[in-house]
Design a binder for these strands. Sequence first.
DNA 1: AATTTTAGTTGACATACGCAACTATTTTAC
DNA 2: GTAAAATAGTTGCGTATGTCAACTAAAATT
Lengths: 149, 149
Amino acid sequence: MVNEKPLSYLMGQTMNLIKLGLLEKFKKISLQLNVEQYVMLHLINLREDITQQDLANHFQRDKSIILRQVNTLIELRYVARIQDKHDKRKKNLMLTQKGFEVFSTARNLSVELSKELLKGVTEQEFKDFQSVIEKIQTNTQQTNFYSYC
Amino acid sequence: MVNEKPLSYLMGQTMNLIKLGLLEKFKKISLQLNVEQYVMLHLINLREDITQQDLANHFQRDKSIILRQVNTLIELRYVARIQDKHDKRKKNLMLTQKGFEVFSTARNLSVELSKELLKGVTEQEFKDFQSVIEKIQTNTQQTNFYSYC
DNA sequence: AATTTTAGTTGACATACGCAACTATTTTAC
DNA sequence: GTAAAATAGTTGCGTATGTCAACTAAAATT
């Protein structure tokens, strides 16, 4: 395994292709969304009480840039920011109807891209692929590079 | 497979973890390099006549930002820019000795990270993983999202 | 009740990035 | 052989991203 490419190289190359493919699909239907915004909408959709602090933890970014990016999503009318019921310091983020529609569209394109990119991949190969991904994520948490919710 | 996470999500999450892990390792030994610079050094090391245009194609970035990033690597004395033998428009990029040393160090850290993250992954799983990665890259080129050297 | 911690906000600064316009050089079309 | 088009690289400008420090308001801890 001496000549093996490091994992970061394999993943980086591939991720770059996926990202570009996704952006291309967004562009094709005039969806004004970048990949990070898509991920943000995805996370906001997953929970109904997610906060900017949660997003900052997830992306490992400063709260201030998360605030600004959320502001952009609010300006686009994809996201709303409301006060937490129990903790006045906190504000929860929620998808608006428009935001949900945009997210759904983006998600469908993402699934479509998956299908295209996984053409010729057997079920067993994909199972092992997912298994590796899970192990990488588990090993990362054990190494404690960082933790997030 | 309805509830399956799209490929872009799986990969994105994982790539983010890998990136952070790598940056952490660089930081630990005071290696002033970000991941994209590392990839750049890697590409420059692969060929001896690579140009800024080639890098712009690879990263799908504007030539002007590639120029500036290359300038930074030149300032760090990791890279040199020399005129192409056959085409006066072109300038080739090469690693300096210092650049090669830095790249080698970064590469070793990258390999080290690979080993840590792939703990518990069987040989068969990894083979399938690589097979999937190859197919993704092949499918991308067929779809012609973009092409690069 | 005072102090510490957390969530969010703002301003300043540095870097990244895209775009247009430019020069110099090579390739292509005629 | 010459003019036009294309390519490689550069520069300036505006916008976005990102970090950091400092702030306010609210909750948790002491």
